[in-house]
């Protein structure tokens, strides 16, 4: 594989490998499609791989997934690079994705983003020095009536205020995952 376009500083030290349970889960996902159409499971397996291997997709992870799905690595790269949910760079333990689209903006998402930037002392796109939080923005997350909001993992945090953000950050830092 040519590596001229790959940032070699962003690699996994070891080749990623699913646990036997996770591997069985991936196989089961592929079986949900008719014979020969198992590539359809790719996006879901990439979500799984991202969760398992540090919240982002390295070249190694993508190559590993290509092997499992039995397709060419380029077929994985082209998908991973198209869908914005996939992180192609390392991220912190918790990724805050703040919705910035119209309806959220109308009720204060710009201020919310600035507040989190100041609070965590990072800009959008950056990760805190302790590797705990990454701040990103997202386009409409379908929570317009409960805005402003952010997503962290599977969880939507809605009706946010500065105080709620403080509580949220404290909860994630203390290891008590907010309900």
């Amino acid at each position: 594989m040519s590596s001229t376009h790959v940032d070699l500083s962003k690699r996994h030290a070891e080749t990623p490998c699913f646990s036997p349970e996770k591997l069985a889960e991936a196989q089961k996902l592929m079986s949900l499609y008719p014979e020969g159409k198992h590539k359809s499971a790719l996006i879901r397996i990439l979500h799984m791989a991202e969760e398992e291997f540090g919240g982002w997709l390295s070249i190694e992870t993508m190559d590993y997934v290509a092997g499992i799905v039995n397709i060419e690595p380029i077929e994985v790269y082209e998908v991973a690079s198209f869908y914005t949910m996939f992180n192609l760079d390392p991220v912190g333990n918790y990724v805050f994705e703040v919705c910035r689209t119209g309806p959220c903006m109308l009720v204060g998402s710009d201020n919310l983003i600035s507040y989190i930037e100041n609070k965590l002392d990072i800009k959008v796109g950056e990760t805190t020095k302790d590797g705990m939080f990454t701040l990103k923005t997202a386009e409409c997350l379908g929570a317009c009536g409960y805005a402003p909001m952010l997503q962290c993992g599977k969880k939507y945090h809605e009706h946010l205020t500065n105080e709620k953000v403080d509580e949220l950050i404290a909860a994630y830092r203390s290891g008590e995952l907010p309900k």
Binding site: L32, L42, I43, L46, E78, V79, F82, E139, C140
Partner: peptide, 27 residues
């Protein structure tokens, strides 16, 4: 009946892009 997730692409709400995505490709 099965469920398949996308990956964060508005365009996949367009029906032929949705189909492409469901086939495991770019939308």
């Amino acid at each position: 009946l099965r469920v398949a997730p996308g990956g964060g692409a508005y365009i996949c709400g367009e029906e032929t892009a949705l189909i492409e995505s469901l086939e495991g490709k770019r939308g």
